[in-house]
């Protein structure tokens, strides 16, 4: 047993140095948020600021308009995540049904579009959303963000659902559960790891999104998100690096919270489910 414990702890000898190196640039970014521009750009490499200042955070708060944009960003990101989860999980479930006519074509099309760049102009999307009358709100932006992001989640859900043992579903059906019920009560709860992953990735994507929230709020700048606000630090030739670093630190916090929260979905395998 001792040998086993030793063998297990040996891994830390590998992981700790790896993580220290890994996180160094990130820590540097955090420390830059407390430095003066002079120290960040031409000072040494020290991680500890000589003369720590909170001025960057004050500037970040006003320049990136955190106070007005945070609520928009939360709304937008949650809308995107909910849209993607619902649409992708239903589609993935349907596509995992055996023998569904037309499935091959659809899956082939999905995969093929992964590789063909989605147009280099936003104009078709813009026309569509405008035509739906959603051109100046976050819902239009959320649709435009969620739409192209669907392919991978659909494939992930499909892969996951088709890997679930058939016995499970049949048992549910024996109990008299219909299609909808089986999906909602049996299958979806099992798919937590995939849901967690999809939610996390799309949350990050939406949280940092820049182009779509910009284009779909042109007439209504009060609806913009932080991803757009961050560009307040870039002038034409110069950049307010310490302000940007501070803003980056603030805006990373919600993502870390979401990460820690969703991380639980990665620890529960489907073991228990199979037994019951």
């Amino acid at each position: 047993m001792n040998r086993l414990a030793f063998r297990r702890n040996v891994w830390h000898l590998l992981l700790i140095p790896l993580c220290l190196v890994w996180i160094y640039p990130f820590v540097w970014m955090v420390s830059a948020a407390f430095k003066t521009p002079r120290e960040m750009l031409i000072g040494g490499l020290s991680l500890l600021p000589d003369d720590a200042t909170l001025e960057n955070f004050r500037r970040a708060w006003t320049t990136a308009k955190f106070s007005t944009y945070t609520a928009n960003t939360i709304t937008y990101s949650i809308a995107v995540v909910v849209l993607v989860l619902l649409v992708a999980s239903t589609a993935g479930y349907a596509l995992a049904r055996p023998g569904l006519p037309g499935k091959k074509v659809l899956v082939g099309l999905l995969i093929a579009t992964m590789f063909i760049p989605h147009g280099y102009t936003i104009i078709p999307t813009f026309l569509l959303v405008n035509g739906l009358g959603l051109g100046n709100g976050l819902l239009g932006a959320a649709l435009a963000q969620a739409g192209p992001a669907l392919v991978v989640p659909v494939l992930l859900f499909m892969g996951f659902f088709s890997g679930i043992p058939k016995e499970l579903e049949e048992a549910a059906r024996m109990d008299g559960a219909g299609y909808l019920r089986t999906y909602w009560k049996v299958m979806l709860p099992l798919a937590k790891p995939v849901m967690g992953t999809v939610a996390l990735m799309n949350f990050i994507g939406a949280w940092n999104a820049f182009f779509i929230p910009l284009v779909f709020t042109l007439g209504n700048p009060d609806l913009r998100t932080l991803g757009v606000g961050m560009y307040g630090f870039y002038g034409q030739d110069t950049t307010d690096w310490t302000g940007l670093a501070a803003a980056a630190c603030i805006s990373v916090i919600p993502i870390v919270v979401v990460f820690l929260f969703l991380q639980r979905t990665f620890v529960e395998g489907i073991a228990g489910a199979v037994k019951s």
Binding site: T113, I116, G119, P124, L143, A144, G147, P148, L150, V151
Partner: peptide, 10 residues
């Protein structure tokens, strides 16, 4: 969604 935001722009 796929048709509107992926296939059509494509």
């Amino acid at each position: 969604l796929f048709g509107g935001f992926t296939v059509w722009p494509l």
